[in-house]
Design a protein around this nucleic acid. Structure first.
Lengths: 213, 213
DNA sequence: TTGACGTGTCTCATATAATGAGACAATAAT
DNA sequence: ATTATTGTCTCATTATATGAGACACGTCAA
């Protein structure tokens, strides 16, 4: 929760509140303590955000993310299909590694494949676009379940027998917003897929992050 | 685009910008004209929102909704699964009308069924959860494509032959966030499904709206 | 080339608007 | 009954958002 400092202080404060509420539902007192702002300011700011639908209050009176954000999020996705941005980079990744590459985003307690490019090999990993996978198994799951991280994560025969993979986080403002994975048969990727393709996967991930901004 | 007035002016202005960008990508000059704020203010405010990831700039330099919103939207949905809230109300609606009921949200230029309960009748309308339907046909589409409205909308054999439906908007702060529909065969719903079930559909819609807040 | 125009960026004095202390109310806890 | 704890609201003060306008850059036409 690093505090972003922009040219407009009030926006910074407001977004700080949103960020805090994003983590978990918060009472007013909770927000006051977390921010250090006066009760009055916090209350007024949160009230304003509530008026705009960015926050709302649950049955217990705690602030939670507002419904407006759902619509805005959908809209934002529409204008910026992460999948489209990622596709050329994933293709490049497949060209370089010869293995299948995927992009995953977290969705609740699982992860969803939002983009995938298949290896040209006869024996290859296949993950369908839209496929829902576990968050607790596979290198991609590890990356997405860790709040923030750098570098790559590898897994061998964890999610599925015979399959090995390396994944790297796509970071935006320090947060993991997606995971890029390269996966294929253990026979080709060997005991340490990371040593083999970790660098390439990280490059692809930061390439996507660069476009996302 | 009614301008919300809260206790914090800057938040109002910032959200006004976000709202304008939500409609379509906007250049700075465009935003200046639409808001009436000075170039400096608009630029500074938009820049601040950009720093926070609520806005970003596309290849042409125009402002579009930022990526942060996607994450926040997902998170908001997680804390408030519209579908879960709607299910018991839809079930009740099916009990009362004997016909299938659905909840739709807008998704770009189409609508998506996020919740559905089927009629017990042998002959019934079936809309799968996750199904993508037209925004330009059917009473549900009409409701969602109109910015704001009240009351119910009916359609007979518009989207599909033999199918009639009534829909009502789920309103949140004056905006249509979803549409509740009841649909079934013309044979049962007759020439005016609205006269038959309009009231019930509206009651269900406002029931959902009440929980959304 | 030159000039005119549209666009985005940035600075700075001024006045507006956000701020925090604190009073008050309403529950919850002991 | 007493004491915390929480949320709400008012008002004087000062911090901060504001808009005019200068500047830079690119585009188009003559």
């Amino acid at each position: 929760m690093e505090r972003i400092v922009s040219a407009v202080g009030v926006v910074d404060k407001a977004m700080e509140l949103v960020g805090l509420v994003e983590e978990r539902p918060r009472s007013l007192a909770d927000l006051v303590e977390a921010t250090g702002y006066s009760k009055a300011t916090t209350h007024r700011l949160a009230g304003s955000l509530q008026d705009h639908g960015l926050l709302r209050r649950d049955a217990d009176g705690r602030y939670v993310l507002g419904f407006r954000l759902v619509g805005l999020g959908r809209r934002a996705e529409h204008y910026f299909p992460l999948a489209n941005v990622a596709m050329p980079i994933l293709r490049e990744l497949v060209d370089k590694t010869g293995e299948s590459a995927q992009l995953y985003v977290r969705e609740g307690d699982s992860r969803v494949c939002v983009a995938a490019v298949e290896s040209p090999h006869g024996l290859r990993t296949i993950v369908e676009r839209g496929a829902v996978l576990s968050l607790t198994a596979g290198s991609g799951g590890t990356v997405l379940s860790q709040g923030s991280s750098e570098g790559w994560v590898e897994s061998v025969a964890e999610r599925e027998p015979g399959v090995a993979s390396v994944s790297a986080p796509v970071l935006s403002r320090g947060a993991v917003i997606a995971a890029v994975s390269v996966s294929g048969p253990v026979e080709r990727l060997g005991p340490s897929p990371g040593a083999l393709f970790g660098g390439e996967v990280m490059r692809a991930a930061s390439g996507i992050a660069a476009v996302v901004g």
